[in-house]
Simulated assay, not measured.
Amino acid sequence: MNTLLKKTTFAAVVAALFGAAPLMLQAETIPDRGPVPFSTYDQNGDGTISEKEFYDIREKRMKARAESGRMMRKAADAPEFSEFDANKDGKITPEELQAGQNARMQQRGGQGMGRGAK
């Protein structure tokens, strides 16, 4: 009887771990500041970012910032999916994301880093 209980408990623990594995893999932390890594956007791991994945991550990031009491300055200036989808095929590749993030940083030209000398 004791052996049966151990085997049943072990089987339940293994089943719980395998059932939770996809959730643990998907729950990559979204950075509070700076560029979001490609792997965070690519929730299904297919090597591209869909429009849904893009906006889901953006929404989660904004929600987390709001819940922590962080100011939402320039939220209306958040980039659109189309700004990153350079070839307009409905998905963003790692190269497109990197190019888009680089372009956004260059456009900002240091804005947001405090008041500069006038």
Rank of each mutant, 00 (worst) to 15 (best):
D89W: 06
K118A: 13
G100C: 04
G19N: 08
R61V: 07
T40S: 00
E53R: 00
G116W: 10
T48Q: 04
K88G: 01
S50L: 00
K52L: 13
V13Q: 02
G69D: 10
E51T: 01
A16Q: 01
K118R: 14
M24L: 15
G45T: 05
G90D: 03
G90Y: 06
L23P: 04
D42W: 06
Q107K: 15
T9P: 00
F18I: 11
A75Q: 08
A11F: 10
K6M: 15
T3Q: 13
F38V: 03
P35N: 12
F81N: 12
E67N: 04
G116E: 09
T93W: 00
R33I: 08
Y55E: 06
M71H: 10
A99S: 13
A21G: 03
T3C: 11
S68K: 14
I92Y: 04
M71N: 14
A15R: 07
E83V: 04
A12M: 13
G47V: 08
A64H: 06
A117T: 13
K74C: 13
T48Y: 11
E51P: 00
A64M: 04
S50F: 01
K6A: 15
L5N: 10
S39N: 12
V36A: 08
Q98A: 12
K118P: 04
M71D: 15
A64S: 11
